[in-house]
Design a protein around this nucleic acid. Sequence first.
DNA 1: TTTGTATACTTAACCGGTTTAGTAATTCGG
DNA 2: CCGAATTACTAAACCGGTTAAGTATACAAA
Lengths: 352, 352
Amino acid sequence: MRPTIKDIAERAGVSKTTVSFALNDPGRISEETYKRVMAVVTELDYVPNPVARTLTTKRLGALGLLLPQPITEALRNPYVVEIIRGIGELCAERELSLTMLPPMRGRVIEAARRAFVDGLITIGVGPDHEVVELLNKRHIPFVTIDGVDTEATVNVGVDDEAAAYSLMAHVLGLGHRRIAVLALMPETIKLPEERYSLVRDRRLAGFSRALAELGLSLGSPGICVVPAESSIEGGDAAVSAILASSSPPDLAPTAIVAMADAVALGAYEACRRVGLAIPADLSVAGFDDIPTAAGAMPPLTTVRQPGREKGAAAAALVVELLDGGDDLAHEALHRRLDTELVIRQSTAAPKD
Amino acid sequence: MRPTIKDIAERAGVSKTTVSFALNDPGRISEETYKRVMAVVTELDYVPNPVARTLTTKRLGALGLLLPQPITEALRNPYVVEIIRGIGELCAERELSLTMLPPMRGRVIEAARRAFVDGLITIGVGPDHEVVELLNKRHIPFVTIDGVDTEATVNVGVDDEAAAYSLMAHVLGLGHRRIAVLALMPETIKLPEERYSLVRDRRLAGFSRALAELGLSLGSPGICVVPAESSIEGGDAAVSAILASSSPPDLAPTAIVAMADAVALGAYEACRRVGLAIPADLSVAGFDDIPTAAGAMPPLTTVRQPGREKGAAAAALVVELLDGGDDLAHEALHRRLDTELVIRQSTAAPKD
DNA sequence: TTTGTATACTTAACCGGTTTAGTAATTCGG
DNA sequence: CCGAATTACTAAACCGGTTAAGTATACAAA
């Protein structure tokens, strides 16, 4: 059996307290005793049990990331990876580990319940969500990414509505009138009250506003909204379906506007397979500006949002909350980062 | 203050034990008592402290991934992301969370010491590594990925030597004789004994064997080995430096053989910047076959190794060890997955 | 009526550390 | 030489749960 502090104490002929001091605060005991204790520690290969320590110190040295999907699926979206990398920056700075918490028993809240973390970051959880309630009960500080800016929660996000507006305005400005919008999927739909996809709604609102300026709407003929999983595969599948079902073909969309670059790059795959040229035959626009967007062929038109910074900002806020920043001002607790429309070569005026 | 089980017990007029039963094994108490206890639980917003529970149950419900670099850097390599996704498959299946453990205080072992996990997966740690010793002391089952197949450790990997040989043989077969090898960097180099990069050595051995068949070696004129960070940026920087320092230019390499696809794609960037065409002016080969390798322009020649499967296999082994599989056969504990040379369009015969 | 056996609950020990409060011995100031 | 302060250490409480062992009551069987 693995040795405990008690074993060390007995063998060294001292109390548990003395062993604890030797390990954590050697200045409090004599040089001689210290050496004796440490000799036994080495002899028995003693390593303190971090869980037991936590019970009293109440610090785990870990941040958590609550995911709305299984890890495998979530990481399929490079944008999520960017967010994690941002959180990673703070982990390095503060010597923390990062725990990814996928839904358990199909529920996000179940993961939150079991989380061994000092603080949490959530993606896309609304302020009225049951998870918020639970975390407050557990007294675990948390920050939402892409949530909602209310008094109730600390949030980091962007102006999704405005960003979406600018993207759609660009596409409409090129002359497109038959457009397929590839929308984010509500990731976890086990229970109706788990309402993710605030982001989805806000971006749809932005698209609508741009369309409205031309007297159009998301329901107009030629305009359609199709859900797609946030991955290359998801985009590929959705666009393949759209192209296959467009009959007659001259009523097919002339532009694809995706809510994630990964989905847009999936559209590239679908086009390649059926021999459509981008942007000559079909314009494609994305959202996020993931690292591979600029290097794609053709380079992808998209809205840049700073994924790493989002993650880093959220983690920084969690750490601030942990450091006792209960009295932080509202504006210090709500960060809205900038977005930028990046026009590259995947969008052009329609042929006809 | 957050309520504890004691508070619930007092308020409900029962013992702590009864509360514990109500929460974990309701069948053991009467319907009536159960309701009374749960009413108080709801009233006081009680959520059990998972850390305290762990002290006796000894199950955290978490796997750990020991990273040789900070999270931010590690995730820059899509291949690492694939491995994580593989681990994620098992996490979903077994309802586990996944903790990423970057080095702490510059040392991997320090992260291993503090890890709150049931089992660990390490990347690239050798069997003689101090981390191995520590984990044995802590009685934490662990599996290495890309480590070494010895009795001492449970490992999942591929035949790196053979894979590297086939890749180099392909490049040499096309006629290339001036080749730059972009090698993995020893990730953590705080201490000399933290010897990562077993993979690097084995792949170099494979390259050497292929070269030796033509009477060449890694030290021959025209052949050079340059370290590059495992990321697009790292590959870009390394290749830019190589191209800039090749004077006269007609002694520049005609082929780049990278040990990671991310690095090879970085070479694409460098070539694009200086106007070199791939493969006309320069052949580029990678290693891993990350998801974007096939979609790159031109599609990347590489050696496929199954990243997701590696992660999934490692996680499956950890879980088996956790389930008490101490008596598993050696072959059951060492998995060697297949690789495959994938020839695409980024390699061709040299011009001259 | 006695014995045996569920049932429903409690007491107390335990997990493995940290920390508070306290004791004994030594040093120091006046 | 006495009281105060310091040093070195320990006993016991504590963190917040789980669980083995034990008790009291009700009910069934002998």
